[in-house]
Design a binder for these strands. Sequence first.
DNA 1: GTAAGAATGTACTAAATAGTTAAAAGCGTC
DNA 2: GACGCTTTTAACTATTTAGTACATTCTTAC
Lengths: 225, 225
Amino acid sequence: MGALRMGGEEAEGRNALARGSWKQDPDAVKTDILRVAREEFATHGLSGARIDHIAARTRTSKRMIYYYFGDKDGLYRRVLEEAYRTVRGREASLDLAGLPPVEALRKLVGHTFDHHRDNPEFIRLVMIENIHHGAHLAVSDVIRELNSAAIENLEDIYGRGLEAGLFREGLSALQLHWQISALSFFSVSNRATFTLIFGDSLYAPDRRGDMRRDVEEMVLRYVMK
Amino acid sequence: MGALRMGGEEAEGRNALARGSWKQDPDAVKTDILRVAREEFATHGLSGARIDHIAARTRTSKRMIYYYFGDKDGLYRRVLEEAYRTVRGREASLDLAGLPPVEALRKLVGHTFDHHRDNPEFIRLVMIENIHHGAHLAVSDVIRELNSAAIENLEDIYGRGLEAGLFREGLSALQLHWQISALSFFSVSNRATFTLIFGDSLYAPDRRGDMRRDVEEMVLRYVMK
DNA sequence: GTAAGAATGTACTAAATAGTTAAAAGCGTC
DNA sequence: GACGCTTTTAACTATTTAGTACATTCTTAC
């Protein structure tokens, strides 16, 4: 007894693991679960996400989710950690030390803006985490390593700008990072409501470059003498 | 078993409506439900909110929630609409027409910043609505009326600043509103994760004025020649 | 006062959902 | 080639949760 046949796509994926002949590949299974879970959490939030939905779109089963990640919160935490880890990796790739301060700052701002716009899934995860008052990030150890890259870059640039007499005194790298983040983050996080209320003129596809330039301009004008 | 006693406030509230003698007061009931529901939705999100929790903290019953608001989504939509309505009311109270452009702009920015900081519940509702891609705002009629106040104020100020030769050309009220909103909104929406990662130096109670001044400064420097 | 309708209380239901149980198949090791 | 550990399958459960049925009480118009 027990219906052994399954429908469509699922069947193919599962056939490889069908009863009586399957290969063990724990890493691939974990990666697969995390990929699907990231989409589910980013789309529906923590409470809105359904373990059964995730399981259905994975090539493995619900049991494995619990086997590897313990419970729903554990899975969510891992998804969040991986998201932050990935972002951190990308940030390091920027080489600004060789550029003069103004150009370096402009490039950093533009890069941050683009990065946010290109990774709405990550933005959504951060929004969701903020809805939950950062409770899951608080018990994670990944975060402490995160402050380094962006802030250190900014500190270097700001310092060089000061020395060159181009930037005004009394600002801080942390504050600048905050402002750059605010403008870049909001551009993604509040797009839905903003567009609904004010129309999509600011968000037309060919306007993305304009918005980016405006954000760069705003930061530069704030920093420069 | 069967604890019949309830704690403090609740008991009093329900006694008034106890079996055999109760007064009808539909408006008070609706208001009460909306107040509790707003807190619940703002705290836990749409999927995370529990109708039973709302009912328990209301002085009426779950039955009445469905009687007046149809279903969970209907209740959420009403909460959202009321939140926007309230905000719109407060925005109109600002009188800037008499001020010279620079001061008017500074005051508008400061007011927006303060308003966001003082109404985190509203910010959270907007965050939640964005998580849901604005799907509920999209089917509401309250929003269309909203664009007016803030944008018109800005248009007036910007126009007067141009005439006076104080502001630079080529900007738009919508864009300015976007930037002001971004800085003010982010200050509340991402406070949790930002504080966890970078510490609370920017958010220390005695620093709020500094942040407000920085935001004002950033906008003014962007707009002025 | 009485009938019709609005408002409310109590108890219930059906479905969804996080998490579990039990067993069996692969895999390395001796 | 069997033993122990890891990985996987399939079916199951207990609880939570949105939503409802139905009776009852208040209010107002006549």
